[in-house]
Amino acid sequence: MTELDPVIHAQARLRVVVTLATLADGDRITFPRLQELLTMTAGNLSVHLRKLEDAGYVEIDKTHRGRTPTTLVRLSRRGRRAFEEYTENIRALLDPPAPRETR
């Protein structure tokens, strides 16, 4: 069996990564909007984002929009590639490319 990326292969983080991957390449989303799209609590989302950031899959910028502090989140290039690989692996599991031998 193909090894699945353990960072992505967890229900909550998979949803986070899918949502960020759905945005156009180079787009960043604010933390509250991401939370709204995922219907997760702020604490919960923070924990998962930190794990994704530690893996280098997500970039988190704290900036200001006018005077309000804003946290912007985006999938890094590495994260996007990891997600593509993960999806390919899942596809391969569902539909094995070459039926060589069955167990």
Partner: peptide, 28 residues
């Protein structure tokens, strides 16, 4: 954090369904 958050999707089909659903709802 709920304990099953860290849980892996049950199987590949479940993971695929999760990806499709989340993509659709985000686009929507």
């Amino acid at each position: 954090m709920t304990p099953d958050d860290e849980a892996a999707p049950l199987d590949a089909a479940e993971a695929m369904r999760l990806i499709r659903e989340q993509q659709a709802s985000t686009v929507q």
